[in-house]
């Protein structure tokens, strides 16, 4: 149950997380912006070469300028929804650093969830700065404030899904020596299937049909479309993602329960 004391615990954990992040603020900035920016420039150059400067050419219904806008929104979305990662979680388990968290009367997942919320707040500011930058370069075209607000809200919703998924990969450290490979597989698979590389219209219809039952299209393609001002029904994405979130929470619970039995608290 939510009480003042509970809010206090979360708030103080978030403040501690901010203090931690601010200690290495330049590293953190690079960590947040770096990968997303590199990924954006790769895609920017790729699509520029494919269109070969032809401004009239349409691929899957996208002109060069709308394709670039699609990927700029993809960049903003990545920062709003996806920056938090579970590298530390896997490492903490493997090196036996979670022992202290097991003793404190504050749940381990809550500590990580509060740190995630703190990180989201930081990322939000960086994403807004990036948005302003792209807007003033003229690459983004006119802004639709209503679509922007809705997109930001939706991005926060899917960031929870990402957190649950990342938490699950981190918990795999109870069984695996290294969990980074899992994350890389997940990242690449998601990039292809969610529309981060190519808008989904480019894929054959039967693949699009299958994908709608998975969470993938709702992680990148849909939110980008929301940002771009397209009017879409949000029921399907919200229900699908909620279903996968519930599944993820159950999975995390089971992984945690079973994993703890294997935990040896190495190095103590």
């Amino acid at each position: 149950m939510i009480s003042l004391k509970w809010i206090d615990k979360w708030w103080q954990t978030m403040k501690t997380a901010w203090s931690n992040y601010m200690t290495y603020r330049y590293n953190l900035f690079l960590q947040v912006v770096g990968p997303a920016l590199v990924f954006f420039f790769i895609k920017y150059n790729l699509w520029n070469s494919i269109y070969d400067g032809d401004l009239e050419l349409e691929i899957g219904g996208y002109t060069l300028s709308s394709m670039i806008q699609y990927h700029i929104w993809g960049f903003i979305l990545t920062m709003l929804a996806k920056g938090h990662h579970a590298v530390d979680l896997g490492q903490e388990i493997r090196l036996g650093r979670i022992s202290s968290y097991l003793i404190y009367p504050f749940n381990f997942w809550e500590f990580h969830a509060a740190s995630f919320v703190a990180f989201q707040a930081y990322q939000f500011i960086v994403a807004l700065i990036s948005l302003a930058f792209f807007y003033y370069t003229g690459l983004l075209g006119p802004l639709n404030i209503e679509a922007l607000a809705l997109g930001i809200l939706y991005a926060q919703f899917i960031s929870i899904f990402w957190f649950i998924l990342q938490f699950a990969t981190g918990l795999m450290a109870f069984w695996l020596e290294e969990t980074w490979i899992l994350r890389v597989i997940l990242e690449i698979m998601t990039a292809f299937l969610s529309g981060a590389f190519f808008p989904l219209e480019i894929y054959p219809q039967f693949i699009q049909n299958i994908l709608q039952y998975t969470p993938f299209p709702y992680l990148t393609y849909y939110p980008i479309k929301i940002f771009m001002g397209e009017e879409l029904s949000l029921w399907a994405p919200i229900l699908t993602i909620s279903f996968w979130m519930a599944l993820g929470i159950i999975l995390n619970y089971l992984l945690w329960k079973r994993g703890l039995k294997l935990y040896t608290a190495a190095g103590m």
Binding site: D8, T16, S99, M268
Partner: peptide, 29 residues
């Protein structure tokens, strides 16, 4: 209960001890 591990720090490494203590104040109410 409390546990002190001589070989492992329980305090958060990158923040002052007082910040860790304030966090524990909230956790232990």
């Amino acid at each position: 209960i409390a546990l002190v591990m001589g070989q492992k720090s329980q305090l958060w490494w990158d923040i002052p001890a007082m910040d860790s203590l304030l966090l524990l104040q909230k956790y232990y109410e």
